[in-house]
Structure formats: C-alpha cells, structure tokens
Design a protein around this nucleic acid. Structure first.
Lengths: 249, 249
DNA sequence: GCCTGAGTGTTACCGACGTAACACTTCACC
DNA sequence: GGTGAAGTGTTACGTCGGTAACACTCAGGC
C-alpha cells in the first residue's frame, strides 16, 4: 500500500476550468457541524457500560454489516469508524464518520435487518450493548432520555444536510463540506490549521462525497492549488478551515 | 389554476430514448416503506393530547418555517403535510410527506433554530405540543419511549434511503420511488390500483424527486405510456404498484 | 366570450460528471 | 534491487440532466 506522503504535485498543473469556480450560494446547512461527538460520554456510559466487555476491531474490520439482525448499539471507546451502506450497484456509500465517545448502530432501533454497516477506519475499541438494555436503562434513568433523543436527532439533521448538498452543490463544494465535517468530528488543531489524523484514501473520500474517485483527485488538487488544503509529512490532510468555509458557503 | 383533469396526451408522443430504459439495479432501500404512519396514534395521543387545542391550517399554509425557534412538535389529526426546507439557491426541497396520525417538527429536539419547514398540502388539523411536554410525558410513561425512538429512527432510515437513491438512481427511477413512497403513506386502494388522493403539482413532485419540473413532466408521461401510472377523472394519480415496484427495483 | 395566470408538454443547447484507459509513484515483500 | 499491488493524476468521450424558451390547455374573473 503506497503511503501518500508528500504526494507528487505534477509540475504541469492542469487548467482550473474543469472545476467550476463561481461561488455557489450557501446551503441552509443547519448547524449540524459538531455532530454526535461525545454525546454518550459521562452519565450514559456510567449507567450502561460498567461490567461489559470491550471488543477490539482492527483497521478495515467490520463492526456490523448490512443484513445483520442482532439489535445492538456499539459504544465506541477509541478509534474511528465509518458508517454507511453498500448501494444496489455494489459501491460503498459512507453516511458518516464517528469516533470514541460516539455510538454506532442506532438504526437497529426500528429495523430488525440492518440497512447500514460500520467499519473500523483504524484500530477501534467498542462495547456492544443490546438495544433492549439501552432502553431499559433509559426507562430507569429518564434524565438520559434527552441524550438518546439528541443522538437520533443530530443524525437526522446530518442526513438531511447531506440531501441538501446533493441537491444543490457540485463535487468541489460537496468535497469542501465533507472535509469540514471531518474537521469538526475528528480534526485536531495543528497551529492555525486543522489536521485529519487518519489516512483516508481518495476512494473513501469519494464515498463520502458521493462522486467518482477521479473527480476527487482533481478536486483535491484544485483545493491544494487554492491553498485551502495541504498534506502533512505523514500524508494526512491539513485543512485551512477559514478558506474552506468561505468557499463552501 | 388549471386542473389537470384528463391531462392532454399529445398525439405526437416523443421518443423514449431520452429516458433511460435499462433496468437499474435495485437499492438497498431498506424496508422504510410504511413510514411514520400512525406511530403516535393510541396511547401516545391519550397521554399527551387531551385538553389541548387544535389548530387548523389551510392548504399552502405554513405550520412552522425554517428559522423558527419555538420547540414544539405538531401532532397531525387530519390532512396532509409536506416536510422540507428551502435550499441555499432558493428552491424548495421536500424530504417527506406526512398525514393525520403522524408528527412533524421533531427536528427541534436538538436545534433551537429550525432547519426545516412544514406546509399543509390540504386543510390540516394539528395539535402543537412543546417539546418539553413530550419529554415530560415520556419520562412519566416509559412505555412510550419505544415509540418516540421509533419515530426518529424511521425518519433517519428514510433520509438515508433518499441519499441512496440520489447516489445511484436516475430521475425516472427516483420518481418511481417517490410515487411508491406516496402510495405507502397516503395511498388509497382503488381496485387493483392505488390512488394518491391529493393533487400534487409537477413542481411539488419535482421537489420530492430532486429534479427540474420539466424532467418530471417527461418522466411522468414516460411512466404513463408504460401503463405504470394514469390519472383519475379528478386529476389524481393512479398507480400500478406492481409495475412501479418492478421498474424501481 | 375573452383574457389572464397557473399548470403542463417539448425541444435545443451546454455543462458537470461518470466511464474508460493509462501513466506514474511509493511501498511491501521476496 | 526487482516486482507487484495499491494509490494517485490526467485525459477523451459520452450522457444525464439543468437552462432557457416557447406552445398549449384549462379555469376563473371580467
């Protein structure tokens, strides 16, 4: 596997004409930004997780898959995970990325057969909890209710935001929004820039943006020329949030 | 306003080449079909709604709008409502259609400023209930918890299904799925066919399908020539579910 | 009856993006 | 050090669908 360290910037840079430059109007993107991060941290964990065993998942390992029918949520302790599905034409589609402190698998609440899947993006520790157990705890401690509702509501918000972008934005703008979302969820400050501390292939980014990998390659280089992004010497993305926000707005 | 009774079928029917005929692979559409219908009927209503006043909304009247900041759910008693938003480029986008027995406005659970809006598609009766009141009732009657969670979970399921279609289907297939969804939610049996008992303009259908009205016009006529849909003498849509399901699959 | 406005039907044109094909870089492993 | 696999960069081509423009149908008001 080739690491993308210091990705080769071709000397003959192609014309920018391909990627539309005109500023798109901004989305009613809803302030979904901060995501599910850590919603379940604290009280929720204290009430549900003690005396349960953690499971380790290696990079690329499937936590649960489309078609599974056990109804369990997974409380992520450590690591990054992608949540998505496999489309009818066989391609992967990524809805969301979550990390330690988040939950995945909430869709099993109203379906027996899972429509979605979660895959570890890197070494991940998670505690599986049967859905019924979660409900039981919330019934006994009604102060946790708000948090449970919040988890679903935020996910719903994000899903709608995704529909919005798909309806109005072109590839470059959607890529921007994906990068900003990643920054909000798993970004780490690195001076005035924000680093995405996980290596994501262009293919994976494409699955989040909903576009072909080739377009992502072109769009990423477009953003690099615009100084909106760069790579660290570890091959990670380094984002200029200000610039990205301006462009995506 | 012209009624679309017996819509004029042009004698010179255009070639079908424009609309792709090849069968697309089917979506992992998740069995979201039946939707939120009546989820809140029964116990939930008994516990929350007594002694509250109903509000009437006329066709086209806004129930709540983008930017509103009161946190209230609306329990629909009668009528049809569209839930959606206004995109950054000023166009309306419809996420969902709901009817008597459903709730709308659930997104206010985690946002103060509403990102969405609900508009009556016909005369509608609804009971507004502050979000906090709903939470209070659920806390006191934990058996309602499952239903509350179910509402959010189903909405989430549908939102993801929408992302799926946008990712893989062309306009004609998306239209099919929208029609099938309408059938599941507000359809009425009419012999072997199912009738959509509300008049929807092509513009509104376009907002559900996420496409321009012109494309919808063409696609609807394409489906008519294929005998997958027709109009009643009241100008309502009449759907051949079998055929639509086969095509959309 | 006539006019206006809303809704629908149709087409030509063009741009964005999927497809396909291929070159290049880096790393792992032998 | 060589080889293959994975990942990235780039282009030519075709197509779906947005844009624009316009014709037609019907209902209601004058």
């Amino acid at each position: 596997m080739a690491s993308p360290n210091q990705p080769f910037v071709p000397s003959a840079v192609k014309t920018e004409s391909e990627l539309s430059l005109e500023l798109n109007d901004s989305l009613t993107q809803a302030a979904v930004s901060t995501a599910l991060v850590s919603v379940f941290r604290g009280k929720f964990c204290d009430a549900i997780l003690p005396n349960r065993k953690t499971i380790s998942f290696k990079k690329e390992q499937i936590i649960y898959d489309v078609g599974d029918n056990e109804r369990t949520l997974f409380f992520l302790q450590e690591g990054f995970v992608k949540v998505g599905t496999i489309t009818s034409d066989g391609h992967e589609l990524i809805y969301d990325v979550r990390k330690g402190g988040d939950v995945v698998g909430e869709l099993c609440a109203s379906e027996t057969r899972r429509p979605d899947r979660a895959v570890a993006l890197e070494q991940t520790e998670a505690i599986p909890v049967p859905f019924d157990d979660v409900m039981e705890v919330v019934r006994k401690q009604p102060d946790l209710l708000a948090r449970l509702v919040d988890v679903f509501c935020r996910a719903l918000n994000e899903a709608y935001a995704q529909v919005n972008t798909l309806a109005v934005d072109d590839t470059a703008h959607r890529l921007c929004k994906v990068l900003l979302k990643l920054a909000a969820k798993i970004g780490q400050n690195s001076g005035s820039e924000v680093e995405i501390p996980t290596y994501l292939t262009q293919e994976e980014i494409a699955q989040m943006v909903v576009a072909r990998r080739e377009r992502i390659s072109t769009a990423l280089n477009f953003l690099r020329r615009k100084k909106m992004i760069q790579y660290t010497n570890h091959g990670h993305l380094l984002l200029n949030l200000k610039a990205l926000e301006t462009y995506s707005a």
